[in-house]
Design a binder for these strands. Structure first.
Length: 281
DNA sequence: AGCTCTTCCTGAAAGC
DNA sequence: TGCTTTCAGGAAGAGC
């Protein structure tokens, strides 16, 4: 499922391959896939793609036409993909949106999303600003250590919940939250403000390290994730705990990886990731 | 404030 | 074999 690294890989490929292209046509399959701005769809015809950015787990494409800018925000949700198509053929089921392009090798960018968690939005500048401000907190690759420490000390919420709380830190989902917490040797359910500074610094460093390495490796292909060019991400090979219930802890501590029952599945080592209460002397 | 529950949605996997 | 049921999972909203 696309999280920050997968969205970043998608955004980079789009930037590389379709910036400068002219939109010859937009096609919408199911109209309910466009959450906002459907009535502006005609504007995008003959517009030029001038940039692509990632915000959290979303990909935002900028279009220019007659000195005006508009945007397409693509939330990938669980199963959403942006895919290039060089030879426009019949599109597969669950293709909900197609940008047809001129001036590039990639003739189409398709939004494919079988489960339809995640939508597209068409914004003007004000709409985009509002959307971004409301939805996305700090970027995990941009936030400073001090900001991060402050964030942790400001809430009693569970660490994993906090890491995945998009309005606070935008981009981390279940897979990377689990991987980051294991490497930082912190329990998913530990209260954020009970984490000491040393451990919190470790968490900050692991967050950056895991996400950066995952981007370098093209993301994690779990189930059906593919980059726009159809390649699979290789970071799954580096997964240490995600979906590894019952396997021995990679630290060779003797314990086996556990999956928490109840809410969203947490994968962790009960020995290496102990719940700690900071000593308040 | 922070947790839990519900809804959205489909296809894979499990159950019978 | 073939049907039905269960479940995963991100985000938002309701209720406690």
């Amino acid at each position: 499922m696309p999280e920050l690294p997968e969205a970043e890989v998608a955004a980079r490929q789009l930037r590389e391959r379709v910036v400068g292209a002219i939109v010859s046509d937009c096609w919408v399959g199911r109209e309910d896939i466009v959450r906002e701005g459907l009535s502006s769809l005609a504007w995008y015809r003959r517009a030029r793609i001038s940039g692509v950015e990632r915000r959290g787990k979303s990909v935002i494409i900028t279009f220019l036409r007659e000195e005006q800018a508009r945007f397409l925000a693509a939330e990938l949700g669980m199963t959403g993909l942006l895919l290039f198509q060089r030879t426009p053929t019949k599109f597969p089921q669950h293709t909900h949106f197609i940008l047809r392009l001129e001036g590039t090798v990639e003739r189409e960018v398709r939004y494919w999303n079988p489960r339809r968690f995640g939508r597209l939005s068409l914004f003007d500048q004000a709409g985009l600003d509002q959307y971004v401000a409301r939805r996305f907190g700090h970027d995990p690759l941009v936030i400073s250590l001090n900001q991060f420490l402050e964030l942790l000390s400001s809430t009693r919420s569970r660490l994993k919940t906090l890491l995945m709380y998009q309005q606070v830190i935008a981009g981390i989902g279940n897979i990377y939250a689990n991987e980051i917490l294991f490497r930082a040797r912190l329990h998913p359910d530990q209260s954020a403000n009970q984490v000491g500074e040393e451990a919190a610094t470790r968490l900050y460093e692991m967050m950056g390290a895991v996400l950066r390495e995952a981007i370098t490796m093209g993301g994690s292909s779990v189930r059906d994730y593919f980059a726009p060019d159809g390649t699979e991400g290789q970071y799954k090979r580096r997964h240490l705990v995600y979906a590894k219930t019952g396997e021995p802890c990679p630290n060779v501590c003797g314990a086996t990886i556990r999956r928490s029952v109840g809410e969203r599945s947490s994968f962790y080592c009960p020995t290496c990731q102990r719940m700690r209460r900071r000593c308040v002397s």
